[in-house]
Design a protein around this nucleic acid. Structure first.
Lengths: 247, 247
DNA sequence: ACCTGAACACCGTTCAAGT
DNA sequence: ACCTGAACACCGTTCAAGT
């Protein structure tokens, strides 16, 4: 998963700089792609103007010619990832719900390749142009499906980032706790007495899962559960609106 | 909203240090409350070991006696806020749904006083003890209401941080865009052609709202809409489970 | 006119030196 | 044995000095 082109080096390790004028020129896209590669490999925390400069074999200050500042860099990373999300397949079963579902599931796959995206998006105040276009597509799917503008509006709020493929979880309820040893650790620390309901739940989960796969929750299942819960609820509201205006 | 006790100073401005042994002793709670006060007033970014030391009129290094490191400090801030959320009133109408709803709405009020909480929570890998206790209470309410353990589990994933009062929005769809001037700005920059559905939606919102209040969306309404959508859907699943096992 | 890199004003944390 | 503060290894960004 090497998204960026590494700077060319001589076999002896010396870096081409002033010598080689054919060396790939810097551009905003090349800078942003290098940052994405850095984040994919080492996390968003590793994305540093200085380190990015190293990665591109360039003076850190040179980056400021292609990027206003670090905020602008992160904006660029988010925008590029969202811009490159696959378009929803032309023919999908299940009406507007099915189309929206397919869109969210496709986005989710991309987000798993870029695990830093939720944190990056969360840290932005404003939506990037690509995010706006994405949400316009979502609105289009719903309006085409017969949702009122008012319902579309509420839905965008209700779905939030879920439609972009985020799990949006407070903490990894299962990953952090459902692993067998962790449950035991909980009990060992006497927390099980304090958390009877969670303990019972986690115990049952790890018991059920143990017979099938490893342990912990299936993120895909949970994502689909929440998504369908919301989409089903929204379709019910759409039908109710329909009856109210047509009946 | 002054949560912390400021260090006492002489009227001439000189700081009591070694002189005054009765000067309030540092403690983990005092450190954490000071950090919360700092975040409430100036945002999470202003919470710095150095600045916190200044605030408490203490060497920054002295903080490390009460707090393992900065991560531990933020953990402490999150834990204290969650621990002090009001308990759900004993008698609330509407069964488990009503009780859970009341809990989320009460939490939401607290979160609005501590606007840095979503960011702080998002940056944590693990839940704090108070968060675990909170989620145990949520699980208890649902189990008492007749939800199967399996449904409780899915619900915790689906509700995510919403039950803690977070809006969990990707970006402030409305705040950033629905304000009248912004819509015009959008059109001026030719984005309206690219975003026909969003533009139409935002135009209608600002038109509708203009006659009632200012502009933008009502966050409380949107929070309640999404919460009820989820709670209604979960109650439907509970009933379906009921029929499946009893019928 | 352009580019570069030294320097500034921060940060969390270590660790040695002083009591 | 304890505490303190100098120092380290970073950070984003400014700005002046050099070409």
């Amino acid at each position: 998963m090497e998204l960026m082109a590494r700077p060319k080096r001589h076999e002896d390790g010396a870096v081409d700089r002033a010598d080689d004028p054919s060396r790939e020129r810097l551009s905003r896209e090349r800078v942003v792609r290098a940052a994405i590669g850095l984040a994919d490999e080492h996390g968003l925390g590793a994305v540093t103007m200085r380190r990015l400069g190293d990665e591109l074999a360039v003076d850190p200050m040179a980056l400021y010619k292609h990027v206003r500042n670090k905020d602008d860099l992160v904006d660029g990373m988010v925008d590029l990832v969202v811009a490159e999300l696959p378009p929803v397949p032309a023919r999908v079963r299940g009406g507007w719900r099915g189309r929206l579902r397919a869109k969210a599931v496709a986005a989710r796959e991309a987000m798993q390749r870029h695990a830093w995206m939720p944190e990056a998006v969360e840290s932005r105040a404003d939506a990037t142009p690509a995010m706006l276009r994405y949400y316009d597509e979502v609105a289009a799917i719903m309006q085409d499906g017969g949702c009122s503008i008012d319902l579309v509006h509420h839905s965008l709020h209700a779905l939030g980032s879920r439609v972009l493929g985020f799990t949006q979880e407070l903490f990894d309820v299962a990953g952090a706790l459902a692993a067998g040893p962790q449950v035991l650790a909980l009990q060992a620390h006497g927390m099980a007495d304090e958390l009877p309901h969670l303990s019972e739940m986690l115990l049952q989960i790890s018991h059920d899962e143990a017979t099938i796969v490893g342990s912990g929750c299936d993120d895909d299942v949970e994502f689909a559960f929440a998504l369908d819960l919301l989409l089903d609820g929204l379709e019910r509201r759409r039908k109710a609106d329909d009856r109210a205006s047509n009946g």
